[in-house]
Amino acid sequence: MPAPFRIMGIVNATPDSFSDGGRYLDATAAVAHARELEADGAAILDLGGESTRPGADPVPADEERRRVVPVIEALAAGGSAAQLSIDTIKLEVARAAVDAGATYVNDVTAFRHDPGMAALVAERGLDCCLMHMRGEPRTMQSDPVYDDVVSEVKAFLEERLAFAVAEGVPEERIQLDPGIGFGKTAEHNLELLARLDELVALGRPVLVGVSRKTFLGRITGRDVDDRLAATLAANVLAFTKGATIFRVHDVAPLRDALAVAAATVRAR
């Protein structure tokens, strides 16, 4: 029986990501880390060369390519069994990553930054994830306000799903991400997790990315490198609400936690 969930391991080839910035900027270190995540149970490896933390500055496309393409090439040449994902908003970076071996595009702007991304995904037969984000990383946490965050995020994802399909992307290739921490307060994040089933009702797999995020630190009082327990709890709760893809830094502990949760759900 196939696993009822997939884990996406985070590989940040950046100097400024909020949790592990600078640790895997060297391509050799990034490849080794990615292989460890795969061995721990990651079904997807998400390679990113531009931080999307709150307040992050943009990275030129040439520099972003330089950071990620050698890592993807090495993993593809090494016979990685995990699906290789490129975390980018730039069409030229995505194209270079796909040429290097990536088969998944994770776009935090949901094809709004560069609508041509949809055509690339359609033409190359790629999987993709469309995420909700208010504003851009530099501004997204500047007093985000919603009348009903879940309804507004759902309407946004529904619209972007329709756009992607109209551009030729098969619906079965599309996954949706509510964008926990992207232009939301801690209260908004908790509301989205509590009502995640309303987004699952759109009929596409839902991805959640809560790993080590600030709102977990506010709840627990823990620093960024000490939020594993909180991350596991939030992901297990998301699983019970219907999420099936989980983007995390710590793959092995989450694999075990979700395996127990899945066995319990099946037993009932």
Rank of each mutant, 00 (worst) to 15 (best):
Q83V: 15
H249Q: 12
V236S: 13
D107F: 03
A43T: 06
G179S: 11
I219K: 07
A76L: 04
A82F: 08
G22W: 03
P60H: 06
A252E: 13
R138L: 06
V150N: 04
G209C: 12
A229S: 14
E38W: 02
E64P: 03
L126Q: 07
E123M: 07
Y146L: 11
F156G: 04
Q175M: 15
L45Q: 05
A261I: 06
H132T: 04
F5N: 01
I72A: 12
I219S: 03
E38Q: 15
L45G: 02
I245L: 15
T14D: 06
E64F: 09
G116S: 06
G55I: 11
A61W: 02
F156H: 07
E159N: 11
M117L: 15
H113E: 14
V208S: 04
V98T: 11
R266K: 14
N106Y: 05
L196T: 08
G22Y: 03
P170E: 08
E38K: 09
A261Y: 06
L75F: 04
S142A: 14
L91G: 01
H249D: 03
S80W: 11
L258I: 04
S80T: 15
L207E: 01
S85D: 08
A257D: 05
S85C: 14
T28K: 14
L193C: 05
V210C: 15
A34E: 10
V153C: 04
I174G: 02
G125W: 00
A32G: 13
L25H: 06
D20E: 13
F246Y: 10
A100S: 07
L45T: 02
P170F: 12
L228F: 04
A82V: 08
I10K: 08
V265C: 04
R227V: 09
R6V: 13
P2R: 15
V265E: 15
G242A: 00
E38L: 07
K241T: 00
A119Y: 00
V206G: 11
A262I: 05
E191A: 15
A77C: 02
R227L: 13
A166M: 00
D256A: 14
R160D: 06
D20L: 03
K184T: 05
E172G: 09
I245D: 00
A42M: 08
R227T: 10
A252Q: 14
V93R: 04
L192W: 05
R138W: 08
L25P: 02
R124Q: 13
A229P: 00
T244C: 13
A13G: 08
V149I: 09
N235S: 14
L130M: 12
L237I: 14
G242W: 03
D87Q: 08
R23P: 00
R212H: 15
R212E: 10
L25M: 06
A43Q: 14
G179N: 09
R255E: 10
S151C: 01
T28F: 00
T264D: 02
A42G: 05
N106P: 12
A74N: 05
V69S: 08
D26T: 03
A13F: 07
C128G: 12
V260Y: 05
S51F: 09
E191P: 00
R195P: 01
P70K: 04
D225A: 15
G116N: 02
L91Y: 14
L176A: 09
R65C: 14
A259C: 00
Y104M: 12
